[in-house]
Design a binder for these strands. Structure first.
Lengths: 295, 295
DNA sequence: CGATCGTTTGACGGTGCTCAATCACCGTGG
DNA sequence: CCACGGTGATTGAGCACCGTCAAACGATCG
């Protein structure tokens, strides 16, 4: 029932069939620069300085492709409402999800260096975006300093998030990856002012699986494992975090079930032998780094 | 104990041990904006417009930590020469390599949104960087348009690369990941004007393993597998690509050894059963995407 | 209500992680 | 000069996590 997206009933549905339909995106009423800045986190009002500047707002239906990988880049997009996933389609049809984006996030910036989009972007629910023409981007950045700084800020955040995604793809137990993903989702929700305990996941198990680098069946199994361990309550895409501390402990641990929680309370759940991992660079050669965390 | 850190006797070592030591990086002669722009790929000379602007150049010895994860960010770095790795240290001491950076690449931009570095940066060989004070960054960007555009270009490329890294971490056979990594390294070398056939890897097997999301022993085994398949010749960190087409074919295939190469020539090397993968989003639900590649 | 897709659960087999030993390489110091 | 400790790279053996295949159930929408 997808209980409500962000912009219900826009009356533009256009009924046509799937991929033949030309416009997965449709133009809505234009927005102002102030609207754009607000969603990007700039409180300051610049209406008086640039009153006339407006830019198009597009509606994107759930499942529609906003940006096509390989297509020439015309616009930079900033999410106004809704949720998107960014993905690359590998040569054999495989889809690798790279990130999820919500209000305030920038889409399509990776196309600037080559002129072609390096990744596709698909709406996970009915959404709206600001479409900034690439031709005018430099002009606006030079004439609207808050916009420029907000853009740099968003790009920096996007790079930092790419690192977090790599952490979630790190070769650790699948339950740990899912726990990290849920913690990450939780703090994302909190940053947007929503409840960090009750999550409604907009993405499918497949998408989560691709982001975490596991099979989607494994995501299901990891969900039930976290439920068995008392961390969560799960009903399809609704997730309630019952024990945030335990979930975080699981997310921090390299492999499987955290040690200090293994005794008693969750009987018989312990099944892995080792808890230290040889994987990758644990305790590698950079002693300067180790020095920052004295034994 | 902790036998020596990054600076084998630079005179600054201050004898007092490890992390207390202040300067793993040393100041060299300052560079000009033109130098910075040149390494970032801007041919245009702006010396006449901004003749007086110079900025510090730092020397970073092999193994030294240029940026510390969690530290407050003072500078933005642009690689002038050498190679770096960027990594995040997880809570349990695990090191996740995020990317490798060479001349022209920007380091530390992920700190702009939070004020603290989201990742550490370590030199893989003796290197030099331009250090751009964050306080002056906006000023320079506004007064030197080529620098600003070069920065945006570099950031866009960095985001695109993050996607490629995710592809290399994708859950496919380990030999495929290594093949993708080598192809990626090869084109990187070609872009810098060096030979795409003969590679000298600056990073250790551990670092490669972390980037690919496998154990470092598996990287060794995958190297020997690619050698057995006739793709490579490997001597420690020197790699010669013998059959680029076959290597690319292996990199494109989802799992293991490419089919069309399996017969005859490499006898007995075939050992995997399936070649199609259920993993993640192969052929998932987005019909618009399929429309772009007609059957 | 039927078709389609998403989710869950089960069983099985294989890839790759773990542990371990060995070798090569290097700078150090006897 | 060679012995010595330390690091990195390689190879082998064993096992278990997770990918694959399969089936069943639930959800959604026409």
């Amino acid at each position: 029932m997808l209980p409500q997206a962000s912009l219900p009933g826009d009356g533009l549905s256009s009924g046509g069939g799937w991929f033949v339909r030309r416009n997965p995106v449709m133009v809505a009423a234009p927005g102002t620069i102030s609207d754009l800045l607000r969603v990007m986190g700039v409180s300051q009002d610049v209406t008086q300085r640039e009153p006339a500047l407006t830019l198009p707002v597009w509606r994107v239906r759930s499942g529609a492709v906003l940006l096509h990988e390989g297509a020439v880049a015309d616009f930079l997009q900033v999410v106004r409402s809704g949720t998107f996933k960014s993905l690359r389609t590998l040569e054999d049809g495989y889809e690798q999800v790279l990130s999820f984006a919500g209000p305030g996030d920038v889409l399509g910036f990776d196309a600037l260096c080559s002129g072609h989009h390096a990744s596709s972007v698909v709406a996970l629910e009915d959404s709206t975006v600001f479409a900034v023409p690439l031709r005018e981007l430099d002009h606006w950045r030079q004439h609207c300093t808050p916009l420029d700084q907000a853009l740099q800020f968003a790009l920096s955040r996007q790079l930092a998030r790419a690192g977090q995604v790599a952490e979630m793809m790190a070769p650790v137990a699948s339950e740990v990856r899912l726990a990290r993903f849920l913690v990450w989702q939780s703090v994302s929700m909190a940053e947007r002012g929503e409840s960090p305990r009750r999550l409604y996941l907009r993405m499918s198990r497949r998408d989560i699986a691709s982001l975490l680098g596991v099979a989607h069946e494994t995501v299901s199994r990891s969900f039930t494992a976290l439920v068995d361990w008392g961390c969560l309550r799960v009903d399809n895409r609704e997730v309630e975090i019952l024990d945030a501390d335990r979930l975080r402990a699981c997310a921090h641990n390299t492999r499987g079930f955290p040690d200090e929680l293994a005794r008693g309370e969750v009987a018989g759940a312990r099944r892995r032998g080792t808890c230290s991992s040889n994987l990758a660079n644990a305790r590698s050669a950079h002693r300067e780094l180790d020095a920052t965390r004295p034994a």
